Amino acid sequence: MTDLTRRTLLASAAATGAIAATAAVAQSDKVEAAPPDLSGKAILITGCSSGFGRLMAESFARKGARVFATMRNLPRPEADELRELAKNEKLDLRVIEIDVTDDAMVASGVAEAERINGGALDVLVNNAGISTAGPIEIQDMQATHLLFDTNVYGPHRMARAALPAMRARKSGQIFNVTSQLGRVMVPGFGQYSPTKFALEALSEQMAYELVPHNIEVTIIEPGGYPTEIWANANRMSMKLLDRAEEKHTSGYTAMIAQMRQVGGNGGGTTDPMDVPNAIARIIAMPPGTRPLRKPVHPGPKPQIPINEVCAKVQLEWLGESPYGPMIRAVHKA
Results as ranks from 00 to 15, higher is better:
residue 54 R to P: 00
residue 55 L to M: 14
residue 57 A to Y: 04
residue 57 A to N: 04
residue 59 S to K: 09
residue 63 K to A: 13
residue 64 G to C: 09
residue 64 G to L: 04
residue 67 V to Y: 15
residue 68 F to H: 08
residue 69 A to H: 00
residue 69 A to E: 01
residue 70 T to E: 01
residue 70 T to P: 04
residue 71 M to N: 10
residue 76 R to I: 05
residue 76 R to W: 01
residue 78 E to A: 11
residue 80 D to F: 11
residue 81 E to F: 01
residue 83 R to A: 12
residue 83 R to H: 11
residue 84 E to C: 02
residue 87 K to C: 04
residue 88 N to V: 07
residue 90 K to D: 14
residue 92 D to P: 04
residue 93 L to T: 00
residue 94 R to Q: 14
residue 97 E to K: 05
residue 99 D to C: 04
residue 100 V to S: 07
residue 101 T to D: 07
residue 103 D to T: 07
residue 107 A to Y: 02
residue 108 S to R: 13
residue 109 G to E: 05
residue 109 G to P: 04
residue 112 E to D: 13
residue 112 E to R: 08
residue 113 A to W: 00
residue 115 R to E: 15
residue 115 R to C: 05
residue 118 G to R: 04
residue 119 G to T: 01
residue 119 G to E: 01
residue 119 G to A: 05
residue 120 A to N: 07
residue 121 L to A: 11
residue 122 D to L: 03
residue 123 V to R: 02
residue 124 L to Y: 06
residue 124 L to D: 08
residue 125 V to T: 06
residue 126 N to H: 10
residue 133 A to V: 05
residue 133 A to H: 08
residue 134 G to S: 09
residue 134 G to C: 10
residue 135 P to W: 11
residue 136 I to Q: 13
residue 136 I to F: 15
residue 137 E to K: 07
residue 137 E to S: 06
residue 138 I to K: 05
residue 138 I to W: 07
residue 139 Q to N: 10
residue 139 Q to S: 07
residue 141 M to T: 14
residue 143 A to L: 06
residue 144 T to I: 14
residue 144 T to Q: 10
residue 145 H to M: 12
residue 145 H to P: 02
residue 148 F to V: 13
residue 150 T to I: 13
residue 151 N to C: 09
residue 152 V to F: 12
residue 152 V to D: 04
residue 152 V to E: 07
residue 153 Y to N: 05
residue 154 G to Q: 03
residue 156 H to K: 13
residue 157 R to N: 00
residue 157 R to C: 00
residue 157 R to K: 09
residue 158 M to L: 09
residue 158 M to H: 08
residue 159 A to T: 09
residue 162 A to C: 11
residue 163 L to K: 08
residue 163 L to R: 10
residue 167 R to W: 12
residue 168 A to S: 06
residue 170 K to Y: 02
residue 170 K to L: 02
residue 171 S to F: 05
residue 173 Q to P: 13
residue 173 Q to Y: 11
residue 176 N to G: 14
residue 177 V to D: 13
residue 178 T to C: 13
residue 181 L to F: 13
residue 182 G to M: 11
residue 184 V to G: 05
residue 186 V to P: 02
residue 187 P to A: 15
residue 188 G to P: 15
residue 191 Q to A: 12
